[in-house]
């Protein structure tokens, strides 16, 4: 079509604001009271990660607590992404949005990637420390306990609360937090420590970031007051993850 440039973002909006938020209400009604289990599970993971971070950094052997915590967290996250793909995107969202089936495929692929990391076959993971880790923990706790409260905060009923591991936004935001908390492990010693974690670990970043843009665009077209939240969270996560390359002295130095 030669006139694509004449379309606005709002021209692609297929549903009304009430219809969109009804999706969460219907999902919550269908799974009640399992939301509490999802929140308890997420909170348990956050507590485990925080406790593991507080330990003295151990040697990266297969049985170390950091690697074990990272694997379990990735396994639970993988289940959460697959749950959202099936129970929300395909079952509820796809009937009102043509693109939702493609979103579901993306969420499924992310779940697959997280399962591969959780399998532990591709090397060991460790936990980050410092500001990056604190931002990650903050994002995870925000996704678990603040994001569900946005519905009543912006005048919608509690029944439309978006819950981690059930709705896409808190699941994605919590995932960004966890990705900040994890990093590839190192083999200590030697002149240059060698990384041992899965080389494709960085591939777990693009889909959550892409979803932040999609969600932000959708909510912006719906004129939702919290439309900037997910893009802002993505920007914060990227800023926290960014690390300038260490300066390497040249051969003449």
């Amino acid at each position: 079509m030669s006139e694509w440039w004449t379309y606005r973002l709002s021209d692609f909006l297929m549903f009304s604001t009430p219809t969109y938020y009804r999706l969460f209400e219907r999902q919550n009604a269908a799974v009640w009271p399992w939301q509490w289990l999802a929140l308890a599970l997420g909170s348990g993971l956050a507590a485990w990660l925080a406790w593991s971070m507080s330990l003295q950094r151990p040697a990266p052997v297969r049985s170390d607590p950091e690697h074990r915590a990272a694997r379990v967290v990735c396994g639970v996250l993988a289940l959460a992404w697959c749950t959202v793909a099936w129970a929300f995107l395909l079952r509820l969202y796809a009937p009102i949005n043509w693109a939702a089936a493609a979103f579901a495929v993306g969420f499924g692929l992310q779940g697959l990637g997280l399962f591969m990391v959780a399998s532990g076959l591709r090397g060991r993971l460790a936990l980050a420390r410092g500001p990056r880790a604190w931002v990650g923990l903050g994002l995870l706790l925000f996704a678990l306990w603040v994001q569900p409260g946005l519905a009543p905060l912006f005048g919608r009923p509690w029944a439309q609360a978006e819950v981690f591991a059930l709705a896409p936004d808190p699941t994605v935001l919590g995932t960004l937090g966890i990705l900040l908390l994890l990093r590839r492990g190192h083999v200590p010693g030697g002149a240059t420590p060698q990384r041992t974690g899965p080389a494709f670990f960085w591939l777990l970043w693009p889909l959550p970031l892409l979803w932040c843009a999609i969600s932000g665009a959708t909510l912006w077209v719906l004129q939702a007051p919290d439309a900037a939240l997910m893009p802002a969270a993505a920007a914060l996560a990227l800023a926290a993850a960014w690390r300038p390359r260490p300066h390497r002295p040249g051969p003449g130095a």
């Binding site: 297929m14 219809t19 999706l23």
Partner: peptide, 12 residues
């Protein structure tokens, strides 16, 4: 357009 796209929601 938009108004009747309510999915499988029986009350809607």
């Amino acid at each position: 357009w938009i108004t009747f796209n309510v999915g499988d929601d029986p009350p809607a």
